[in-house]
C-alpha cells in the first residue's frame, strides 16, 4: 500500500488504498482505490446502497476499513480516529444532518472552530461568522439547532464543517431536495470554497448540479469504482448507465 501513496506523493492529499469494508457477511466496499489531489474537486455518484457513504466514513475516520489503508498528506491515518483526522484537516457533512440540537447554530460552529480548528477567542468567533455568512445562516445564528428545518440543517452541516478550517471537505448529499435557486446558491458557495483552494469530495445524486463544481467524477457500484474520469465521459460511460438502469436507480 505504501507505494500507492508514494507514487502520487507529489500532490495527492487524501488517498484510500484498496479499501475494503464488510459488515458481517455483507461486503460494502470491495477494494476501492481513490486519490484526491490538492485543490481537486471530485464528485461521487452511484446507485443507492453502492457504498458511497461508507467510503466517506472510511475516509473521515468514522469507520475503520476491514482492509486497506487511508493516507492524508502522505501520512498513514488508517488508525487515526475521526476527531484527530478532523484536527488534521479532514471535515465532513452527514447525509442525514446531525446537528447539536440543544446548542445554538453559532455554538454548533464554535465547537467545530475551537476543537477541530484549534482556534480560540475572536479568531474562533470570526471563523464562525465567516462560515455562517457563507452558508447564509447568520439570521438563525442564535436559534437552537433542533428548531431548524431540513434546509437549514443541511446548511449547518456545511457551515460547521467549514468552521474547522479544513483542507479537505467531504460532502454527503447536501444538495438533495433543493429548489433550483437553492441549488444555485449552494453551487456558488462551493465555488467560493474551491476558489480558496479547498479540496472537495462531493457525493450527490443530482448530477447536473455536481458537474458545475467538480472536475472529476467517480461512479461507485456495489462497492467498486466502475468509472473514474472527466464528468462528461463518466456520464456517457456504458457501465455507469447500466448501473443506474440495472440497479434501483437514483433518486
Amino acid at each position: 500500500m505504501q507505494d500507492t501513496a508514494a507514487s502520487s506523493a507529489d500532490d495527492s492529499l487524501l488517498v484510500g488504498a484498496d479499501v475494503r469494508k464488510n459488515f458481517g457477511a455483507l461486503t460494502v466496499l470491495d477494494g476501492v482505490n481513490f486519490t484526491l489531489r490538492e485543490r481537486e474537486a471530485v464528485g461521487i455518484v452511484g446507485p443507492n446502497g453502492a457504498g458511497k457513504t461508507t467510503l466517506l466514513n472510511v475516509l473521515a475516520g468514522a469507520y475503520r476499513p476491514s482492509a486497506g489503508a487511508v493516507y492524508f498528506k502522505g501520512g498513514d491515518v488508517t488508525t487515526t480516529d475521526a476527531a484527530q483526522r478532523c484536527r488534521l484537516g479532514i471535515a465532513r457533512s452527514h447525509q442525514i444532518p446531525r446537528p447539536f440540537g440543544g446548542m445554538t447554530v453559532f455554538e454548533n460552529c464554535l465547537v467545530a472552530a475551537t476543537t477541530g480548528g484549534g482556534l480560540s477567542g475572536q479568531r474562533a468567533y470570526q471563523r464562525c461568522v465567516d462560515s455562517l455568512e457563507l452558508c447564509q445562516m447568520i439570521h438563525v445564528a442564535n436559534r437552537r439547532a433542533e428548531t431548524l428545518g431540513l434546509l437549514d440543517r443541511k446548511r449547518l452541516e456545511l457551515a460547521r464543517a467549514l468552521a474547522t478550517e479544513p483542507r479537505v471537505l467531504l460532502l454527503d448529499e447536501i444538495g438533495g431536495g433543493l429548489t433550483d435557486e437553492e441549488a444555485n446558491n449552494l453551487v456558488d458557495t462551493i465555488l467560493v470554497l474551491r476558489g480558496r483552494g479547498l479540496a472537495l469530495v462531493w457525493i450527490e445524486h443530482i448530477v447536473h448540479v455536481l458537474v458545475r463544481v467538480v472536475e472529476r467524477l467517480i461512479c461507485l457500484d456495489a462497492g467498486r469504482i466502475i468509472a473514474d474520469g472527466k464528468p462528461d465521459a463518466v456520464i456517457a460511460d456504458a457501465a455507469v448507465i447500466d448501473a443506474y438502469i440495472g440497479g434501483q436507480g437514483a433518486s
Binding site: A60, A62, D81, A82, A83, Q84, C86, R87, A91, R92, H94, R98, P99, F100, G101, G102, M103, V111, A112, T115, G116, G117, A145, R160, A161, A163, T164
Partner: peptide, 10 residues
C-alpha cells in the same frame, strides 16, 4: 447531542 457528530468536528 450527538457523540459521533462531535467526533467528526474534532
Amino acid at each position: 447531542d450527538d457523540e459521533d457528530a462531535a467526533e467528526s468536528v474534532g
